[in-house]
Design a protein around this nucleic acid. Structure first.
Length: 552
RNA sequence: GUCCCAGUAGCUCAGCUGGAUAGAGCAACAGACUUCUAAUCUGUAGGUCGGGCGUUCGAAUCGCUCCUGGGACGCCA
């Protein structure tokens, strides 16, 4: 596919030179696009319009000259036309498409892979929810997008590491300990108020009950500080185990869980600040230590060490990002909720102050998820713990539908999650449409197996049709789609591609019968095509963490 | 007040490193099951791409500006 495009491009370039329309250095990069309307050919280029100024001729005249000098044989061109204001449309000799099927079948699970990423070492940090409660809708979206993006980057040849940053050092963990203490006492039947900023989730109530079952009232005999440490450690361990379990069930795993506390234990925070101080980006004012982030375009300077001597959140974060870079990652991708977008400039400033290019850090912002139930927006409140959790959604909606739903939209669009629609499992949910295409193929292949039709060798020319050609073209776009999704960090391209592919398959299925006992050779060719589609759908769904069922 | 995201068909959204007649799904309407799964397919209808100005041979796409909706602006994390 790509080799052919390159051939075509070089042929066009040569034609421009031969026609003496422009000097080599004046020729812009030749862009081939695939027209939406197939009446406009398989590929089109706008080079004639782009050259209009340089060549001082009308675009259509230029196009004429190019075509005259074009070497048709070199790039398997069947026909060339000039259209509209000066587009050159190429109709290709589509025999190249037939090579696609054996290629896909041979590559199997690895079909779609490329080395576009050139093994660049990329770290993706995502979810990173505080271990103080259950994961909710927003985290579910972040997990879906993050994991899918990682899969896509890997498929496109990047060296990817997935990381979860555990905020286990700040005030919120104290509040967790206090909340656990309250719930434990309440479980023992005592009238014990929740702390002001306590966590009201059902999970903490469960911790209280577990502690009662395990220890009875014995924990009350410990000294207050000892108690606090105990509740803290117990709560943290419990919450982390739950996070990992929920995420794993959601088919999201991490290579590394990074503890904020470890930054202090291994003395990483002070040295990171010292690096900035040595470079002159640190100053003291009003009894606090400041980072001059305005040197790098931030709105205002930021406090690193407060008057009371404690760190702001930014300090360990700078140390953490320095640590990431020290580990040799060439690109850091952070996936954050929209409520953190204001934090980007100071973080990028820190990256630059550490001596790296600002673009080393990329922050992908995921817009909010609104939950709708019974046609009304459901207000979610952390304070009362009345948020719909990832776990509840997995049970009610199903993992496949969630994974697909959360990644099918552009991440910078607000997402309305309609509980009733998701629960109803109606045909409005496109994941079934794609899965159904896969299941249909499996049924056909199973029948072929029962009839003992062996299609290891076949003659592809026997299965040519308009619908078959559409399918083939779609199959051929898979690798390019993955590359685009990887480079632009747009995982939603994958479900959209899969939907299109499934659509082509369903259309083909309705137009043509595959298994025909009286036309065995034709059947074999079609079965091979089906096998290729099956592999591609399977590989695509795998990228977004959705199962490809054999039957539905 | 400053910053970020969004505004495209009745609804939910693609398309945005500029290209040809702006695309899907749902909803509406008309059809297709004696068939390898109808969770499907085929067709019809539906749009001043929020408004204006500008750049360009060409703008949904780029720039400026205004309007509307959502979010963020702590020596919290």
């Amino acid at each position: 596919m790509q080799e052919m495009q390159e051939n075509l491009k070089s042929a066009i370039k040569q034609a421009v030179l031969n026609a003496e329309l422009a000097k080599e250095e004046e020729i812009p990069a030749i862009v081939l696009e695939q027209p939406k309307d197939k009446a406009h050919g398989d590929y089109a280029t706008n080079i004639a319009m782009q050259l209009a100024r340089v060549a001082k001729k009308a675009p259509r005249q230029i196009a004429d000259a190019i075509i005259e000098k074009l070497d048709h044989t070199k790039a398997s061109i069947k026909q060339v036309e000039i259209a509209g204001p000066g587009f050159i449309n190429f109709f290709m000799d589509n025999s190249y498409l037939t090579n696609l099927i054996p290629t896909i079948i041979e590559q199997g699970e690895s079909y779609g892979s490329s080395n576009a990423g050139k093994s660049e070492k990329v770290q993706v940090e995502f979810v990173s929810a505080n271990p103080t409660g259950d994961l909710h809708l927003g985290h579910a979206r972040g997990a879906s997008v993050g994991d899918s993006l990682c899969n896509i980057l890997q498929k496109a040849g990047y060296d990817v590491s997935r990381e979860y940053y555990i905020n286990d050092a700040g005030n919120q963990i104290n509040n967790l300990a206090l909340s656990v203490e309250a719930r434990y006492n309440q479980a023992l039947g005592k009238d014990f108020p929740m702390p002001e900023d306590g966590y009201h989730g059902a999970d903490i109530i469960k911790i209280g009950e577990d502690l009662k079952a395990q220890y009875g009232e014995s924990l009350l005999e410990k000294a207050p500080t000892e108690q606090h440490v105990f509740f803290r450690e117990y709560g943290l361990k419990y919450e982390l185990a739950k996070l990992a379990k929920d995420l794993e069930q959601f088919r999201v795993t991490f290579d590394h869980w990074f503890s904020e506390t470890s930054l202090y234990e291994e003395d990483k925070v002070v040295p990171a600040i010292e690096v900035l101080r040595e470079k002159g980006y640190i100053y003291e004012q009003d009894g606090a230590t400041w980072f001059r982030s305005t040197d790098f375009g931030d709105d205002k300077d930021r406090v690193l060490i407060k008057q009371d001597g404690s760190y702001t959140y930014l300090s360990p974060d700078i140390a953490y990002h320095k640590n990431k870079l020290d580990r040799g990652f060439e690109k850091l991708i952070n996936i954050w909720g929209a409520d953190h977008h204001g934090y980007i400039p100071r973080m990028r400033a820190a990256i630059q102050a550490l001596g790296y290019d600002a673009d080393t850090l990329e922050v992908e912002i995921i817009q909010m998820v609104n939950l709708f139930e019974n046609g009304e927006k459901v207000k979610m409140s952390k304070r009362t713990g009345k948020a719909v959790t990832l776990r509840e959604l997995m049970e009610e909606v199903g993992i496949d539908a969630m994974r697909y739903f959360f990644v099918m939209r552009s991440a910078d669009s607000h997402l309305d999650f309609d509980m009733d629609l998701a629960k109803s499992q109606s045909n409005e949910n496109p994941v079934y449409y794609v899965q159904y295409a896969h299941a249909r193929i499996c049924t056909m292949l199973k029948q072929a197996e029962e009839k003992q039709i062996d299609f290891t060798s076949y003659d592809q020319s026997l299965a040519q049709s308009e619908k078959a050609e559409e399918l083939l073209k779609k199959l051929g776009e898979f690798s390019q789609t993955i590359e685009d999704a990887a480079i632009n960090r747009t995982p939603h391209r994958i479900p959209q591609y899969l939907f299109d592919l499934a659509s082509s398959l369903h259309s083909f299925y309705n137009a043509e019968k595959v298994i025909k006992e009286d036309a065995l050779e034709e059947t074999k060719a079609k079965l091979a095509l089906m096998q290729a589609v099956k592999i591609t759908i399977h590989n695509g769904l795998k990228l977004i963490g959705v199962n490809a069922p054999e039957s539905m």
